[in-house]
Nucleic acid binder design. Structure first.
Lengths: 231, 231
DNA sequence: TCGCTCTGTGTAAAATTTACACTTAGATTT
DNA sequence: AAATCTAAGTGTAAATTTTACACAGAGCGA
């Protein structure tokens, strides 16, 4: 193979993650405070240079793991950003992912060297961020919105056992619009991908709501037959 | 700024374009024959390393221009591919775009150094391609399918004056499924984004069909009011 | 037991989607 | 000029989906 004689090429590129959580009825994004230059002490999206021997998806999973301790999380590559001046150290393009996790499951103790701490921030009220991260976050919210109505990923933001009301509020918050309660419940239940756990939430100061769980298996089964989730 | 002391970083990354055309009732993709190593003489998607002073979108537009002479074409960045072994010369990730052009408008005389010739190939019967280009093309077809039902981009594949039948066949070909003729026409016309040119095609050996044109302005106007294209 | 808060439920009207077959225009052939 | 061929063009009824909308019930706390 003559290819061995070719000059070698190399990419320094980063992976940035917009990590979504849902807490207290609000959509949140996980931010870090940067520990190192450039943009030291700025708030930013968690992200890091990819290693040379690492696939892009793996780098994204690593960033999330180092930050939250979570693995096997739903992640979606949604866009690559590469304006020539986006990084002060040179031409560094960044491949952006969004991830969806259950906010309270994440232990926020970064084991990375670029971040000292991590914290949730309301997705719709982000502060000024390092690099072009405000733009990236904005695009991620848009991507999430498009996705959550076509794929049943909303459940990943909720605890295993959830109420229909919390699912309802989640959709209203992500889509930023009101959705009729009865119509929402009717439709969601008609899919047949939610299991009624036959038990009620306890400790609430009013009528206790029923608990439900998202049924992955049933969804996969229906998908085989051509069912398409769409809200 | 202390940032000046930081080590400089650099990305060698490429841009690959899946250029769609529609000709003789068939969806086609523009391929090149590679003129240089690696994969010399292989068929491939048109693509090139981005210049250091070039935004990603600009690099994609350049690749298309050098190949076809066309500018201001609809292009969509749909995914970045970066398996560690995808490029024999090292770690080179590639940002993939698809473009939509009117097949017969393109003058296929590449002025690039990496390609000697360019030619249309049926999108659903691609030969073995260089790098991971078969995977990229497959994903592009998927992205096109998702897009064409939500944004009125199908028109870009047709001549300025087209018949409803050709538009109908275009949708059937891209979506790879039959669509009822009457329902398709009814729906498409109901959007109000197609102008009746009040003239017929000439030189056909049967009843001549009416000609129509895609009305950008009307679409933009309706979009302002909240209209969403959806087929 | 009264009040508060949030849960949970049904129906009718409107809009949209689906299924479906024959007539017409225009060129070509006999 | 009549018959034939090809593709264009058209309407309706039934089924399904979407929308709009309001009140009774459960459970807790005062």
């Amino acid at each position: 193979m003559q290819e061995i004689k070719l000059p070698s090429l190399h990419s320094d590129f980063s992976v940035d993650c917009v990590i979504f959580g849902f807490d207290e009825g609000e959509l949140k994004i996980l931010l870090i405070e940067r520990n190192e230059a450039p943009f030291e002490q700025w708030k930013a999206l968690p992200g890091n240079l990819a290693n040379d021997d690492e696939d892009i998806d793996d780098a994204a999973a690593r960033v999330l793991y180092e930050l939250s301790g979570l693995e096997n999380i739903y992640m979606d590559q949604f866009r690559t950003f590469g304006n020539i001046n986006r990084h002060p150290q040179g031409r560094v393009i960044t491949v952006a992912y969004y991830a969806i996790i259950q906010a309270t499951e994440a232990g926020l103790h970064p084991v990375t060297n670029y971040a000292s701490k991590a914290f949730w921030w309301p997705a719709h009220k982000l502060p000024e961020l390092a690099f072009d991260h405000n733009i990236i976050a904005e695009k991620a919210i848009e991507a999430l919105r498009n996705k959550i109505v076509r794929e049943p990923i909303g459940f990943e933001l909720l605890p295993k056992e959830f109420t229909l009301t919390s699912l309802h509020h989640l959709y209203e918050e992500v889509l930023q619009k009101e959705i009729d309660k009865r119509n929402f419940r009717k439709k969601m239940m008609s899919f047949g991908i939610i299991t009624d756990l036959k038990k009620k939430q306890v400790g609430v100061p009013h009528r206790a709501p029923w608990l439900y769980a998202w049924n992955h298996n049933k969804y996969e089964e229906l998908k085989q037959k051509g069912f398409v989730f769409e809200i």
